[in-house]
C-alpha cells in the first residue's frame, strides 16, 4: 500500500512538471490537466507498485537527497570532467592498454550498486561490464591499466573509483 502511494505521488509530480503553463486555474495548471494527471498516475502506480519501491523506505529521508545533490555537483562532476579530458587524450594519441578487472566495493543494496555502476561508467577510464549478483562484485573494463593495481586480486577499488563507494554508502545504505 505504501509503495502504491509513493509511486503515485512521484508520477503525479512528474506529470505536473511536464504540463506547467497549461492554464491559470490552479496557479499555472488547468483543471483538465490535473484531472487527467491524477487518473493516469493512479493507473501507473497500480501497475508499477512492486517495481519502483522494494520494501526499503530510506530514500524518503531528505538529508540523503541533499547528500546526493552535493555528490553529483562536487566529486562526480569533477571526476566526469577528468574522464573526458582523459578520453580526449586517448582519442588523439591512441595509447590504450585495456583489460577487465574485478572489484568488490562491499555495497549491499540494489540502488547503491546501480548508482556505483553508473558513476563508474561516467568517470575516468572505466566502464562497468558485468555484475556478480551473489557477492555484489563488479567487473570493470579499464582502458589504461596500472601495473601496481594488478598485484592483489580482487583489485582494490581505490584505483578504479577513488572514494565513490564511501559517498554512495552514505546515500543509499
Amino acid at each position: 500500500m505504501i509503495s502504491f502511494i509513493i509511486t503515485t505521488v512521484i508520477c503525479f509530480i512528474t506529470y505536473l512538471l511536464l504540463t506547467t503553463g497549461s492554464g491559470t486555474d490552479v496557479w499555472i495548471w488547468s483543471y483538465e490537466e490535473i484531472l487527467i494527471g491524477i487518473i493516469l498516475s493512479l493507473i501507473t502506480g497500480f501497475i508499477a507498485r512492486n517495481v519502483f519501491v522494494k520494501n526499503n523506505l530510506r530514500m524518503l529521508n531528505p538529508i540523503r537527497w541533499l547528500i546526493f545533490l552535493v555528490y553529483v555537483i562536487g566529486p562526480f562532476f569533477v571526476g566526469m570532467a577528468k574522464a573526458n579530458i582523459d578520453v580526449a587524450y586517448r582519442v588523439i594519441t591512441g595509447k590504450i592498454k585495456p583489460g577487465i578487472v574485478r572489484i568488490s566495493p562491499n555495497l549491499k543494496t540494489d540502488l547503491g550498486i546501480t548508482m556505483l555502476a553508473n558513476s563508474i561508467t561516467l568517470t575516468p577510464g572505466t566502464l562497468s561490464v558485468d555484475i556478480d549478483e551473489d557477492e555484489n562484485d563488479l567487473y570493470v573494463h579499464w582502458i589504461n591499466i596500472k601495473e601496481e593495481a594488478l598485484k592483489k586480486k580482487p583489485v582494490d577499488y581505490k584505483y578504479v573509483c577513488n572514494g565513490f563507494p564511501k559517498w554512495i554508502r552514505r546515500i543509499a545504505e
Partner: peptide, 15 residues
C-alpha cells in the same frame, strides 16, 4: 574494439 568505442561513445556524448 567494442569496449573502447563504448568509452568514447558514452562519456563524451553525456558530457
Amino acid at each position: 574494439d567494442v569496449y573502447t568505442r563504448l568509452h568514447a561513445g558514452t562519456k563524451c556524448t553525456t558530457f
